[in-house]
Amino acid sequence: MKLTIPTLHTSEAGGEWVTWLAIATAVTLTAGVGMAFFYAPEEATMGVVQRIFYFHVPSAIVTYAGFLTCATASVAYLVTGSRKADVVARAGAELGVLFCTAVLLSGPIWARKAWGTWWTGEPRLLLTLVMCLIFVAYLVVRQMGGRSEMTRRICAVLGILGVADIPLVRVAVQRWRGNHPRVLREGGIAPEMAHAFTVMLLGVGLMFLTLLLLRIRAGLLEEDVETWHLQLSARRATLDDRRS
């Protein structure tokens, strides 16, 4: 029996230029944070706490990107059965939960100052919380179910249901409550603030992309390790057979 060594998946999922992407992320984020604190003017009523917004809003946007990645890859997995699609779905869900948590942590700090309370039944806050719960449940099922095809299938189903749910949650909570700031849409924002925000959005977006590609790469390597173990055990069994 021949022991075939699978090609390492480092060249896939971004390959060499993940490094460049990481550097671009570091530069953009540093510039963004600098602009958020020293370039953008201090907001009159809320003061320094308002600067959370430069991190909070981009995080919320990439949260959606993570969950959408998960759902799209889940559909691909159910249709094609490709392990790679499953790895992408998992990476999307994990990053979605990561940034969702960042949103949930930064939100209350801002709310404490702006609304005088850490937590309110505010719609977008609730939406974020529910999304977070849905995909934490997804990750729990993944963890409990192990690596079987069945778990991958179940999780693909959950990923699709989770994203299908988001518009409904959104409509429902908006109907229920509503006082989230809508500064951007009303045009009530200084140009310097807009510049800082754009750079931060780019930085957080690049960070998301870098982490996603790294996580996909790690996931593919995990799959490789499992394949190796499998081949080793097959090899060992063959040798044992020959000996006896």
Binding site: V130, L133, I134, A137, Y138, V141, L158, L161, G162, D165, L168, V169, V171, A172, V173, W176
Partner: peptide, 11 residues
């Protein structure tokens, strides 16, 4: 898994 997904319905 079920409750978070059902939240909009229950609400």
């Amino acid at each position: 898994v079920l409750y978070p997904l059902c939240l909009p319905l229950l609400l």
